[in-house]
């Protein structure tokens, strides 16, 4: 029996076509889930008795905030794998995730500020979670700036990996900041152990939207990683073949 080779797709030349095949599926999933999530968010979920209609921004705010933290961990994971095993593709993945993560962080901050204005009466408050989210944005920017300023891609990957691993310490700080600093930001509304303190339809809308953002992130990261693969492997035979075949078509 042939042993399943887990590392078959770890090579950029085998991953490139696979990623190309996966992109349409994830794009479709992202669009479909976003349509369902937005429908639930706008038409099914009831108006909040305290916060009125303004609360509906959470259907974008909460998923982007989740993704911003999650993507940082994923980025650090791939960067660490790339550092430990010297796999080229892992480091390219880390590099491809960073801009999407930064975008999610920025969106979370922006929508949070839009939400904060009617709720707290201020666009920005120096609350622990907002501040940690801002720090997260700085961490993403630092990671990208470090990689951009190193010309040798191998050194850029490894230096970025060390920085990402050091920065990942920040993600738990974000998560536990609510318990550490008792501030005016409301505590986490979704918890596994407690029954959720929000209406079920709101929760569903949020979860569906989170899945939509997840699918979007995967699709965009795959597109970006394909571009990075082509750029870095431009001198290899398989990319030349690809180009020749593309030209022949």
């Amino acid at each position: 029996m042939a042993k399943l080779n887990w590392f078959y797709f770890a090579a950029p030349n085998t991953f490139y076509p696979l990623a190309g095949k996966m992109i349409p599926w994830f794009t479709a999933a992202a669009l479909g889930l976003a349509a369902i999530g937005l429908y639930i968010g706008f038409f099914v979920a009831p108006t909040d008795f305290q916060q009125g209609e303004g609360y509906r921004i959470i259907f974008v705010h909460v998923p982007t905030a989740w993704m911003s933290m999650f993507l940082y961990v994923v980025m650090a994971f791939w960067a660490a794998i790339g550092l430990a095993f010297n796999t080229r593709l892992s480091s390219m993945m880390a590099q491809a995730i960073a801009p999407t993560g930064a975008l999610m962080t920025f969106l979370a901050l922006w929508t949070g500020s839009l939400w904060g204005k009617p709720m707290w009466g201020a666009w920005w408050v120096w609350d622990a979670r907002l501040t940690s989210e801002l720090i997260l944005l700085f961490l993403y920017i630092g990671f990208m700036a470090l990689q951009a300023s190193i010309d040798d891609p191998r050194r850029a990957d490894r230096a970025g990996a060390v920085l990402a691993i050091v920065g990942v310490i920040n993600v738990p700080i974000i998560y536990f900041s609510v318990q550490w600093w008792n501030t005016l930001h409301q505590g986490a509304s979704v918890s596994i152990t407690r029954s959720p303190s929000m209406a079920t339809t709101m929760l569903w809308g949020m979860l569906v939207m989170a899945l939509a953002f997840w699918m979007y992130s995967i699709a965009v990261v795959l597109v970006r990683v394909r571009a990075i693969i082509l750029e870095r492997e431009r001198n290899t035979d398989w990319v030349r073949d690809l180009k020749a075949r593309g030209a022949a078509k």
Partner: peptide
């Protein structure tokens, strides 16, 4: 020290190190 080590010999090292280190 981690930031200083990573930015050793890079162009614009001084500004870059502040970007890496200040958030931490």
């Amino acid at each position: 020290a981690v930031g200083a080590a990573l930015t050793l010999g890079l162009r614009g090292g001084g500004v870059l190190v502040s970007l890496l280190v200040l958030p931490l």
